[in-house]
């Protein structure tokens, strides 16, 4: 588990302990203690209680949830995180499929990206990514957990071609193709997609439609 996961667990655990104590034992338990001497400061029972309450209700929980949020965002970069929702299983299965010719599968097969493969192209999700990408991710979360979606799922808006160009632009093979220069402005603006010539990145919508011949195979649990 990563750092922020541990932080969440640790601080959260502490919160639970303190909070349960306060809840079960009640405030009077703390308030009846004798003043505690902390150096020059003397904390009365009530003061102690209020300090503990502050940590139990405000500071620690906020820290816990903060850590949980960071963990969520950073954890969203992993392929396992994407695979957490079954509607994404086709993308993950296709990614790992050596027989597939989708862009995702080809990048994977060639080991161009080692680890966090989804994130390297859909790079808005991490902490340093675009706010809109994260917001979109949160929206996906609600849609999925509430079940308000239809298969095949569709991406809202467009994929940012900058994600392709960040790696490919400037390389010798890329620059050697004249059509890239003809298309350069549109690629930069995002009005033309790289997938237009290079094909779909993931299984097509038809393949991901329940009832399609490919659907069963694509909907295996990849983990």
């Amino acid at each position: 588990m990563s750092l922020f996961a541990w932080v969440t667990l640790g601080v959260g655990g502490l919160t639970l302990v303190l909070g349960l104590l306060l809840l079960i034992r009640g405030p009077s338990w703390l308030k009846r203690t004798r003043p505690i001497q902390l150096g020059v400061v003397a904390l009365s029972g009530v003061a102690t209680y209020k300090l503990v309450a502050f940590f139990a209700i405000a500071a620690l929980p906020v820290a816990t949830l903060g850590a949980a949020h960071v963990e969520l965002l950073e954890g969203a970069k992993s392929v396992e995180a994407c695979a957490g929702c079954h509607v994404m299983w086709p993308m993950v299965n296709d990614l790992h499929d050596p027989a597939s010719d989708s862009l995702a599968a080809r990048h994977f097969k060639n080991r161009y990206i080692q680890g966090e493969e989804c994130y390297h192209c859909h790079s808005g999700y991490g902490f340093n990514g675009a706010l809109s990408a994260k917001l979109e991710g949160y929206r996906h979360l609600v849609r999925y957990t509430t079940g308000i979606y239809q298969e095949p799922i569709r991406m809202r808006g467009k994929f940012d071609t900058a994600s392709c160009l960040n790696c490919h632009e400037g390389t010798r093979p890329f620059e050697a193709i004249n059509s890239h220069h003809v298309a350069s402005e549109r690629l930069a603006e995002g009005t033309m997609s790289c997938t237009n010539c290079h094909g779909p990145a993931h299984p097509t919508r038809s393949e991901r439609t329940p009832g399609d011949a490919h659907y069963q195979g694509l909907m295996r649990d990849p983990l």
């Binding site: 237009n196 010539c197 094909g199 779909p200 097509t204």
Partner: peptide
């Protein structure tokens, strides 16, 4: 104009089609 993923060309075009 995008390539039709469900047609024989599986979503692929050339630069002329894309323009």
């Amino acid at each position: 104009v995008r390539g039709d993923e469900d047609a024989h060309n599986r979503g692929k075009l050339c630069i002329k089609g894309s323009l």
